[in-house]
């Protein structure tokens, strides 16, 4: 692993806690210009789809440890406020479910 984020980890995963799957969607705030969204809308329209608005954002999946849902929510909200979203230009939404999968780490390709 390349260690890039070696600047301390305030939200470090606690031990013995339950695991939660948190999906964070970050999108441009209303009124913030979104050229990527406009380009996608233009492409969809040229294919004949009647699309009124497209906002392009970013999807981030996290696996966090917390003793309950409320703690998981607090933790992920704090991540969004501090790093994952920039409140000047972005809003975010969070969806959390308990991670039922076996295994010890985030899965990936």
């Amino acid at each position: 692993m390349t260690k890039i984020l070696d600047m301390g980890s305030p939200g470090a995963v606690g031990s013995g806690a339950r695991r939660w799957l948190a999906d964070v969607v970050v999108t441009p705030k209303p009124g913030v210009n979104d050229p990527e969204g406009e380009t996608i809308r233009g492409g969809l329209r040229s294919l004949g789809f009647g699309v009124d608005e497209v906002r392009a954002g970013r999807f981030i999946r996290l696996v966090v440890a917390a003793s309950d849902l409320a703690e998981a929510e607090r933790s992920v909200t704090s991540m969004c406020e501090q790093l994952l979203a920039n409140p000047v230009i972005q809003t975010y939404s969070i969806t959390i479910v308990e991670d039922e999968r076996a295994g010890t780490g985030p899965t990936g390709g």
Partner: peptide, 17 residues
Amino acid sequence: LTEAHLLPGALLRNRTL
């Protein structure tokens, strides 16, 4: 500097992407 809030505003993708 904008991310650190030492300056206001933000810098977005160029209009042309």
